[in-house]
Amino acid sequence: MTTEPNSDKFRRNAQGHLVPIDKIKDIDRLRDDLVLSLIKRVNKLHENMREFKAEVASEIDAFLELSASEYDTAYGGKKGNVTLRSFDGRYMVKRNIADREVFDERLQVAKELIDQCLHEWTADSRSEVQALVEHAFQTDKEGKVSLSRVLQLRQVNITDEKWQKAMHAIADARQVIGSAKHLNFYEREGEDGPYRHIPLDIAKL
Rank of each mutant, 00 (worst) to 15 (best):
I60D: 02
L151S: 10
L147K: 13
M92K: 13
S127C: 02
T73L: 14
D201L: 09
D192Q: 11
R85E: 09
R12Y: 01
E4N: 04
D192S: 11
V82F: 09
A131Y: 07
E128Q: 07
S146R: 02
T139F: 10
H182W: 12
E142G: 13
L153M: 06
D104Q: 03
E187K: 14
E120F: 13
E112W: 03
R90C: 04
K53Q: 10
R12L: 02
V35W: 11
V176A: 00
V82I: 15
S179K: 11
G143K: 08
E101F: 02
M167P: 00
D124S: 15
K23D: 15
R126H: 12
D26P: 05
D160C: 03
L147D: 08
G190E: 06
L64I: 02
L66Y: 12
E70T: 05
S127V: 04
E189W: 13
A171I: 01
N81D: 14
Q152W: 07
V56G: 06
T3A: 03
A14K: 07
F52W: 06
Y195G: 00
V102I: 15
T73P: 04
V102M: 02
S67E: 15
G143F: 00
V19G: 01
E105T: 12
K162A: 13
A57I: 02
Q155K: 14
Q155V: 02
T83R: 08
R50N: 12
E51N: 09
S7V: 05
L66N: 08
K25P: 03
L107D: 00
C117F: 06
L200P: 10
R126I: 14
P5F: 11
R196N: 12
R31T: 08
N184I: 03
N96R: 04
E59I: 03
